[in-house]
């Protein structure tokens, strides 16, 4: 059993302010969980551990798709719809970082205007940092913070293969936005995009026949694919973020998926799988193969994670990391 971790005092104070919906606290918390200085990490860990074990209700949605598919415009339209239904929304938009300079342009913000003056909408952009096309640990941390405050949290990323599976582990419902005419069925299958998403969206329905054709190809592809014989069949939604057509139906489909997850108990299983995958990826990224070996290999790590179903991903990763450091230190002194 992993004991409560980190610096509890200040974290409790921040958690309380988050609970009260203090907007400045949301920002402070997001800054804190992104901070790599050791004293801040301890505080962040305490905060995240508490929040992750406490937060459950918020709907976590991933929005992914190729550049130019119209994700931001779609997100803008969805946010308006949710706000119209009285729901609050937190958004994390992830853009790639330059591998050479570490810099990043987080330019999407200008296209999402729905929340400009609305306290019920919060927007934080993040750089993917060192993960090629993927998500940094900060994305999960950010999502956990926002999920403690808002009814819905959306993580938006550019889909380039790797990021779909990263996002899938982070959210309850994964939405893939397809560009009409962007590819034939074969392309979709090659890219592996047919396997993970729970809802497909063909944006720019205003393009007419091209959009219809893309929907047809996706539906045909889904019929062919091997998906779990679960209760959920991913729908393909034709929408136009530009004129608002189909947005309400899309929001309904997302709700329906969430209800299906809850009814089948899949929600808990999915979050558990996401937690496990995060711990594994995080430990592997931080300590590499030697680190995993010090724990007794990947299988041993999985057993350790399995044995503690109630711990937060952050506490687990932290505990295992400390264990690895300890083992490496012993080995270092043993051989010296």
């Amino acid at each position: 059993m992993i004991p409560p971790v980190g610096d509890r005092g200040e974290a409790a104070d921040l958690a309380e302010r988050l609970g009260a919906g203090d907007r400045a606290a949301i920002s402070e918390a997001l800054n804190l969980v992104d901070d790599r200085r050791p004293d801040r990490r301890a505080r962040a860990l305490a905060l995240l551990d508490g929040l992750e074990r406490g937060a459950g209700g918020a709907a976590r949605i991933g929005l992914t798709g190729a550049p130019g598919a119209g994700k931001s415009t779609l997100l803008d339209a969805l946010v308006r719809t949710w706000r119209g239904r009285g729901e609050t929304v937190g958004v994390i938009a992830v853009d790639p970082s330059s591998q050479r300079t570490g810099g990043a342009l987080l330019g999407d913000r200008i296209r999402v205007r729905a929340g400009a003056r609305d306290p019920g909408v919060f927007f934080r952009s993040m750089a993917a940092r060192d993960r090629l096309g993927g998500l940094s640990d900060a994305s999960r941390a950010g999502m956990v913070v926002l999920a403690s405050v808002f009814d819905r949290v959306v993580v938006e990323t550019v889909g380039v293969g790797q990021s779909e599976s990263d996002v899938a582990g982070l959210v309850d419902t994964l939405v893939f936005v397809a560009q009409p005419g962007a590819g034939d069925l074969l392309q979709f299958m090659k890219a592996g995009v047919l396997e993970l998403p729970d809802v497909f969206v063909v944006n720019k329905a205003d393009l007419g026949a091209v959009a219809e054709r893309t929907r047809g190809e996706l539906e045909a592809g889904l019929g062919l694919g091997e998906r779990g014989a679960g209760a959920w069949t991913p729908p393909v939604k034709l929408v136009s973020a530009r004129d608002g057509a189909g947005i309400d139906e899309l929001a309904d489909a997302l709700d329906a998926h969430r209800r299906s997850l809850e009814a089948t108990g899949e929600l808990a299983r999915r979050r558990r799988r996401g937690r496990d995958a995060f711990v594994e990826a995080s430990v592997a990224a931080e300590y590499g193969r030697f680190g995993l070996a010090a724990l007794g290999g990947r299988e041993a790590l999985r057993r350790r994670v399995d044995a503690d179903p109630d711990a937060s991903a952050f506490a687990l990763a932290d505990a295992l990391g400390r264990e690895i450091e300890e083992a490496l230190r012993k080995r270092g002194s043993g051989s010296a």
């Binding site: 970082s97 810099g103 987080l106 913000r109 200008i110």
Partner: peptide
């Protein structure tokens, strides 16, 4: 700013 390694929120 990006090319010197900053994370840039470009608000337009």
């Amino acid at each position: 700013a990006r090319d010197v390694g900053m994370e840039v929120v470009y608000e337009g």
